[in-house]
Design a protein around this nucleic acid. Structure first.
Length: 968
RNA sequence: GCCCGGGUGGUGGAAUGGCAGACACGCACGACUCAAAAUCGUGUGCCGCAAGGCAUGAGAGUUCGACUCUCUCCCCGGGCACCA
């Protein structure tokens, strides 16, 4: 009896095509469901390799097993086919990307079928199919409508090779493109962003409920990067400053002035207060007092906005900061007891000839500055997680990107030097910033001082690129004694290091010594005035309150850069309408969505006009200018505004590859629905995905993005669950035979079809599972594959022999021992499959076969049980054997065998006899034996006697039906 | 540097705190064969003739008993990396 795998596999694969119901999910919403999902592949030109198939074989085994157990199993497959490789291939070979995708998909499907993967092909989806991406665009429209999509022109990661912007998550290692490993550049490109940060807390919290690998959860937590702390304000001032100018504006942003009556200023237009001089370090408070006195406003009527910069109202007067205040009073009129009647007016109404021209110009500028948000706070907000260390803050550092150093509004005396430093920092690549991490550069802002809010001490201010512009407030209070980075900077620049946290109370009595490194743990406060003796934890609360700090939570997570300047992606369904932007008056605003208000001029297409299909273009070549190839198709770009009907231009950026995979698991549930993304009832039945299998490389990409979209869909009532994927399993990488990651460029790719041709699909499947735990990384090594082939051949042989024997004479009853082992194996294999421990399931079947082979021929019932156990693993061969055994229908439509609990209840057990913890004998004894009987048997044993002879038994440990340990 | 994993024969890997090395590969020997392959059988952690001893990266600890729990260290893999 030879095992002609090619013949058998062809035969059964054909049979399955004729009977697709075998692997289809039932379209009912009744019965226990299980949704088993693989991360759907990108159909690359190279086809599948053995690494891809590992996870798919695992889910196939699991699904086949569950179907036999009677579950309604959904196990679909589809294609994540948008993205650069197809587009690049299309450019190179001058073919349409859609054609490339079609060919590759056909190849993938062929390969999968050859391996015997039983997907429910009636639910096949493709992200590049307009009928599919209609709904991807629909979700985008919903995100836009809810104000979660916004346009921004910001420095982003740009891959010069892929010629497109990338998300932060797509930049790996030391600043390389995730796809092509090219170093990314910082570029200012207009982008669409998705507000994933709005979901940061929920994305973090809900991780706890998920049955995911800890490693993966840790990666997401790390990426979200939550830290709790507080923002503290450090007032800044110029060393030589004891004067301020200030302006008062009303709610419309008009600068208010007054015309004085009586006195020396009779008939003159003046600014309230105008200029004050004070020795008070807190000039804002001084100014507020002045306004109150002059105008009689209460403190609550005045709001401090910030300061505008330094001015020279008259030649030779030096730098005087201009502070801006706003009154919340409608029609503000002073009722001050100043003896003269005041009339407040906007500076614009003042005839030029009445005022001091320079003053009028300057104060007119206030309105524009407020409108354009060019008002700067005269304090630096810093974010810290260590408020307890604030008394040790001996300087303040700004990031080069900090707005306060972008222009010299602080009156920095060495501004030339400072701006040169900022330019250098900007031009540094991420790599340079990282590799230079140890040596901390920076420049002091001469003339500028900041006030430590806890100590009142004035400290110097620096700009340094070890402070990141994109995190927190872009400014830090530096506590060299208790932060490693600040310590390094302080040492490099000769700045004082002052300890304020001691390990414990006793060490706090010590005088400060020269630290060799920062002490970064929590401890007890010292040299912190009234806070001395508090623990770090207590102090954080007390100090935050005392200095009016704002408790704050920050995340490392940034919003998702969502647009790509490439062709092969979903078009973003928005148009830009100049008309709608300009006529956005109050009454019309009501018809605009949140998204349209947030992004003036951008108008959403109507749902009924989805999908917005990708037009055909002559060239897919990216321009590299930040424009997508779509921009060149004037006919497509020029369109009508769906809101006002006027002329408008389409958005020409496309969505990133991740968009389609953010929700595909929902479409599998209801793939042909034209009315909705997914039917609510079906969604409720099938979701969540019970088991999701795929690689860990998607930890902070697909898996984070999909969770984000899912939560949004939950919020708008499209889905019923907070999380999409309940249990997640990362199959380990299968490395090439050289123990390197399999890749085309390394030339170490193993094509599964080669194994299929040589040894058969069933052998390939079982060997991949037998290599080790699914989650472990392992190099591909075929040296052990013969063992699997032999196992299948032997199984076939024993079945054949038994069938033949039955024809000649009546079946022989199995030996009792074999029957017990059979049922133990049924139990073991069942439990192992349930826990994705396929390697030990296979070894259990091998043990059974080894035993059964000792006494062939076997009764047909035993053969059948063996074949059923093996069916999920070796679907082709077991069909063949099932037929040989006269089974009705497909083996995969049979009921999974159950074990006989009574039968495997043994009445004897192996008592392990230990002397002083060392095993000396093993005795076969009846279960339930008492301690004294067990001891009696144990001490009777010759092997044991040798070790206890003539010695007193001091102690004995007896574990029922297991072990006795005699201590002498 | 930080956060996760992991370290068991020649190899892949098994072991609810209770017989370490299941199962498989490889290897050795034997059977079959003129011979070889295939197949089947036996053996196979290390030291030792044996009795026995030693062994799960190293060292300590908890325990009657530790691959398993705790601590320190070393090594390998993955992730993050000036995130205040």
């Amino acid at each position: 009896m030879s095992y002609d795998h090619t013949k058998i596999e062809r035969k059964w694969q054909r049979a399955w095509v004729k009977n697709p119901a075998l692997t289809r999910a039932r379209t009912t919403s009744k019965g226990k469901k299980i949704y088993v999902l693989d991360m759907f592949p990108y159909p690359s030109g190279e086809g599948l390799h053995v690494g891809h198939t590992e996870g798919e074989v695992a889910t196939d085994i699991y699904s086949r097993f569950l179907r036999m157990k009677g579950y309604n199993v959904l196990h679909p497959m589809g294609w994540d086919a948008f993205g650069l490789p197809a587009e690049n291939y299309a450019i190179k070979h001058k073919v349409r990307p859609a054609k490339v995708v079609k060919d590759n998909v056909a190849n993938f499907k062929k390969q999968m079928s050859a391996i015997g993967l039983g997907f429910d092909w009636s639910r096949e989806i493709n992200t590049t199919d307009p009928a599919y991406y209609k709904w991807t665009q629909w979700i985008f429209l919903k995100l836009f409508e809810h104000g979660l999509a916004y346009e921004a022109k910001a420095p982003i990661n740009f891959c010069p090779s892929c010629k497109t912007g990338l998300a932060n998550e797509e930049v790996v290692g030391d600043g390389a493109c995730e796809r092509c490993a090219t170093k990314v550049e910082r570029r200012n490109v207009r982008q669409w962003m998705l507000k994933i940060t709005a979901y940061a807390e929920r994305l973090l919290q809900d991780l706890d409920e998920l049955d995911w690998p800890e490693q993966l959860k840790a990666m997401q937590r790390n990426w979200i990067g939550k830290s709790e702390g507080a923002e503290l304000d450090f007032r800044v001032y110029h060393e030589k400053q004891n004067k301020v100018l200030f302006a008062l504006i009303n709610e419309k942003g008009e600068t208010l002035i007054e015309k004085r009556k009586g006195g020396a200023f009779e008939g003159k237009w003046l600014f309230p207060g105008g200029k004050i001089e004070s020795e008070d370090a807190d000039m804002v408070q001084a100014a507020i007092r002045e306004i109150q006195e002059e105008a009689g406003f209460g403190v609550k009527d005045i709001e401090y906005l910030g300061f505008l910069g330094y001015f020279h109202p008259t030649a030779g007067n030096g730098n005087i900061p201009l502070l801006v205040f706003r009154t919340k009073k409608k029609n503000a009129k002073p009722s001050g007891d100043t003896g003269h009647e005041l009339k407040w007016q906007s500076v614009d109404e003042v005839p030029q000839e009445y005022g001091h021209d320079a003053f009028i110009e300057m104060f007119r500028g206030v309105r524009d500055a407020v409108r354009e948000r060019k008002i700067f706070p005269s304090s630096i907000s810093v974010f810290t997680t260590r408020v307890d260390t604030v008394c040790g803050a001996t300087y303040v550092v700004l990031a080069p990107e900090h707005p306060l150093v972008q222009k010299n509004i602080l009156g920095i005396e060495n501004y030339t030097e400072v701006s040169a430093y900022i330019d250098t920092a900007k031009n540094k690549s991420d790599l340079e910033r990282t590799t230079e991490a140890k040596g901390k550069t920076g420049v002091r802002l001469n003339g500028v001082r900041a006030v430590n809010p806890a100590t009142g001490r004035a400290v110097p201010v620096f700009v340094a690129d070890y402070v990141l512009g994109g995190y927190g407030t872009g400014a830090v209070m530096a506590v060299p004694a208790h932060d490693e980075r600040d310590f390094a900077f302080a040492k490099a620049h000769g700045l004082p290091v002052e300890e304020v946290i001691a390990q414990n109370i006793t060490s706090s009595k010590n005088t400060p010594t020269d630290l060799v490194q920062a002490f970064t743990d929590d401890g007890v406060l010292v040299r912190s005035g009234e806070f001395n003796g508090m623990t770090s934890h207590e102090a954080r609360i007390a100090i935050t309150k005392a200095v009016s700090g704002r408790s704050m939570v920050k995340y490392k997570l940034h919003d998702w850069i969502f647009s790509r300047q490439r062709y092969w992606g979903e078009p973003i369904p928005l148009v830009f309408c100049e008309h709608c932007k300009n006529q956005a008056s109050d009454s019309k605003l009501r018809t605009l969505t949140k998204g349209e208000l947030l992004n003036p001029g951008w108008i959403a297409l109507k749902e009924k006009d989805m999908p917005l299909e990708l037009p055909n273009v002559k060239s897919y070549e990216p321009s590299g200018t930040g424009e997508s190839p779509l921009a060149k198709i004037e006919k497509w770009v020029k369109t009508k505004c769906p809101r006002c009907g006027g002329s408008a231009r389409r958005e020409t950026n496309t969505m990133p590859q991740w968009a389609g995979s953010c929700w595909y698991y929902l479409r599998f549930i209801d793939p042909h629905n034209t009315k909705a993304l997914v039917d609510k009832k079906k969604e409720k039945y099938w979701m969540p995905v019970d088991v999701y299998v795929g690689g860990a490389e998607h930890a902070v990409l697909h898996l984070l993005y999909a969770r984000f979209w899912h939560k949004f869909l939950y919020d708008i009532g499209v889905v019923s669950q907070k999380e999409p994927f309940h249990k997640l399993i990362n199959q380990g990488l299968i490395l090439g035979p050289d123990k390197q990651k399999m890749s085309k460029s390394r030339g170490n790719v193993v094509n599964p079809l080669v194994i299929v041709a040589q040894l058969g699909a069933d052998v390939l499947r079982m060997y991949e599972m037998f290599m080790g735990p699914l989650e472990d990384a392992k190099p591909w090594d075929t040296s052990g594959i013969a063992g699997i082939r032999r196992f299948l051949e032997r199984t076939m042989k024993i079945v054949h022999k038994s069938v033949g024997a039955v024809r000649e004479k009546p079946p022989i009853t199995a030996e009792k021992y074999s029957e017990v082992l059979l049922h133990k194996t049924i139990k073991k294999v069942t439990e192992d499959i349930e826990n994705f421990r396929f390697n030990t399931a296979i070894s259990a079947m091998m043990i059974l076969l080894n035993e059964l082979e000792k006494q062939p021929p076997l009764p047909i019932s035993v053969c059948r049980a063996l074949v059923l156990l093996l069916a999920p693993f070796a679907p082709h061969l077991t069909e063949e054997m099932w037929e040989m055994l006269g089974g009705k229908g497909s083996v995969h439509a049979q009921k999974w065998p159950t074990h006989d609990k009574q039968l495997i209840q043994e009445d004897e057990f192996d008592l392990v006899v230990q002397v002083n913890g060392k095993v000396r004998d093993v005795l076969r004894l009846p279960k339930g034996i008492t301690e004294s009987d067990a001891l009696h048997h144990a001490t009777d044993s010759e092997k044991v006697k040798k070790f206890i002879a003539g010695q007193e038994i001091k102690k004995k440990i007896f574990i029922q039906d297991r072990l006795i340990n005699i201590i002498i």
